[in-house]
Amino acid sequence: MKISLEKAKQICTKSQYGEATWWELVQLNVYLLFSKECAEFSSKNKKLTSLCERAGLDTLSEDDKDDMKKKLKKHL
């Protein structure tokens, strides 16, 4: 049942994507009761998720980037 702080933080990250298992969530919630550091990390982690959603980030696909590189190389 006992997990390390690092492991608790990793589960916290996994839970931000809704991919922590039921058992991992139990472990994390128990840990959060006793660890202020983990609770602070968890709150920042949630905030980061909401900032990423708010920013509505876009990214180019790897194919697009490869294509850009090829075209750029021709001009070099």
């Binding site: 933080k9 990793q10 990250t13 996994k14 931000q16 994507y17 982690n45 980061l48």
Partner: peptide, 8 residues
């Protein structure tokens, strides 16, 4: 998950 955790 280790990589994503480190990145975050």
């Amino acid at each position: 998950w280790v990589m994503i955790h480190r990145a975050r």
